[in-house]
Amino acid sequence: ATNIVGKVKWYNSTKNFGFIEQDNGGKDVFVHKSAVDAAGLHSLEEGQDVIFDLEEKQGKAYAVNLRIK
């Protein structure tokens, strides 16, 4: 899925991951530091509006192509 809109539920910059809540009511999506770095960001803030693509690997969904809304 592409261009999914959501809000950062939480992001832990020490542990380098967090979760994004989808605006469409879907399951929360894992986001890793690598996606944050690829977006040219240092971190994510709770409540921040983002747009992302959804990829699945080994049955787990995660956010890629992250951008600030």
Rank of each mutant, 00 (worst) to 15 (best):
V50E: 00
Y11K: 01
D53F: 03
L66V: 13
G40P: 02
K27G: 10
N12C: 06
L54R: 11
D28R: 04
E46F: 11
T2W: 10
T14A: 14
N65P: 00
L44K: 01
D37H: 15
D23V: 15
F19L: 05
V64T: 09
V29S: 05
D23G: 15
H42R: 09
E21I: 15
G40K: 10
D37N: 13
D23E: 14
I51H: 08
N16D: 05
K27Q: 09
I20A: 01
R67Y: 11
F19A: 02
A63V: 07
N16A: 11
Y11W: 10
F30S: 02
K60N: 09
L41V: 13
V8Q: 01
S13F: 12
E46A: 15
Q48R: 08
V29R: 06
G26N: 11
R67N: 08
L44I: 08
D23N: 15
K9P: 00
V8C: 04
G6P: 00
I51R: 12
V5E: 06
I4R: 13
W10M: 09
Q22P: 10
K69I: 03
G25W: 10
V31T: 04
Q22C: 04
H32V: 03
S34E: 07
A38M: 08
K27C: 04
G47P: 02
Y11I: 03
F30V: 03
D53Y: 03
V50G: 01
N12I: 11
N24A: 12
I51F: 13
K9C: 03
R67L: 07
L41D: 03
K33S: 08
Q48M: 09
A35N: 05
R67I: 10
V8P: 01
F17R: 02
G25S: 12
S13R: 09
G18I: 01
V8F: 02
V29T: 09
A61N: 11
D23I: 15
N16Q: 14
D23P: 15
F17I: 05
G40N: 09
Q48C: 05
V29Q: 03
A35F: 06
N12D: 13
V50M: 09
Y62N: 09
Q48V: 14
N12S: 14
G47I: 03
L66H: 00
K7Y: 06
A38T: 09
Q22V: 14
A35T: 11
V8M: 03
Q58K: 12
E56Q: 12
G25F: 10
D49P: 15
T2K: 14
E21H: 15
H42Y: 14
Q22K: 09
I51Q: 08
E55T: 12
Q48A: 11
A63I: 03
K69E: 09
I68M: 13
K69V: 04
D37S: 14
G59N: 13
E55W: 12
A1M: 12
K69M: 04
V29I: 08
N3V: 04
V50K: 00
L54A: 06
A1T: 14
S43Q: 09
T14K: 10
A38G: 10
Q48E: 13
K15H: 07
I4E: 06
D28L: 07
K69W: 03
D53N: 07
N65F: 08
K7F: 07
V8L: 04
K33F: 07
L54D: 01
G18K: 00
F30E: 02
A1Q: 09
G59E: 08
E45R: 13
G6N: 01
S43I: 11
Y11V: 03
V64W: 10
S13H: 12
L54T: 10
K57G: 12
Q22H: 10
L54P: 01
A35D: 06
I68Q: 13
G26L: 08
K69S: 04
G25A: 09
F52S: 01
G59Q: 12
Y62Q: 11
A38D: 08
Q22E: 09
K69A: 03
L41Q: 12
T2D: 14
N16F: 10
K27Y: 09
V5R: 14
G6R: 01
D49E: 09
V50I: 11
N3P: 04
A1E: 11
G18F: 03
T14V: 11
K69Q: 04
V31Q: 00
I68F: 07
G18D: 00
D53Q: 04
A38S: 13
S13C: 05
A63Y: 00
G6H: 01
A1W: 07
H32P: 04
G6E: 00
Y11G: 01
F52H: 02
K9Q: 04
V50S: 01
L44Q: 01
Y11M: 03
G26K: 13
W10I: 04
G26T: 14
D37G: 12
F17C: 03
D53H: 04
A39R: 04
E21A: 14
Q22A: 11
H32W: 03
I20R: 00
K57T: 07
H42S: 10
S43N: 14
L66F: 02
Q58M: 12
F52G: 01
F19E: 02
N16P: 02
H42K: 11
R67A: 07
R67Q: 15
F17Y: 14
A61D: 10
L66E: 00
K33V: 08
N16G: 13
I4T: 06
N3Y: 07
N65Y: 06
Q22L: 13
N24E: 07
V5T: 08
F30P: 03
G25H: 14
K7P: 02
A39Y: 03
S34D: 07
D53K: 03
E45M: 13
S13G: 10
G6Q: 01
I4A: 09
V8E: 00
G26Q: 10
V36M: 08
Y11L: 03
K60E: 08
K69D: 09
E21Y: 13
Y62S: 11
A38H: 09
E46S: 15
G25Y: 09
I68G: 07
R67K: 10
K69L: 07
S34F: 13
V64L: 07
D37M: 12
S43H: 11
I20N: 00
Y62R: 11
I51S: 07
L66R: 00
Y62C: 04
K60T: 07
H32Q: 04
H42P: 12
E45I: 15
A61C: 04
A39W: 03
E56P: 05
W10S: 05
S43R: 09
K60S: 11
D23M: 15
L41P: 03
E56C: 04
A38L: 10
S34A: 15
T2M: 12
E46C: 05
I51W: 14
H32R: 03
E45K: 14
A61M: 11
N24R: 08
G59S: 11
Y11E: 01
S13I: 13
Q48S: 11
E56A: 12
K7A: 15
N16R: 14
A63H: 01
K9F: 03
E45D: 14
F17L: 03
Q58E: 13
Y62V: 06
F19M: 06
G40W: 05
Y11H: 01
D37I: 13
W10E: 02
A61W: 14
L44P: 03
A35H: 07
V8I: 10
N65L: 06
K57N: 11
V50A: 05
F17T: 02
K15G: 05
N16E: 08
V31G: 00
F19H: 02
D49H: 15
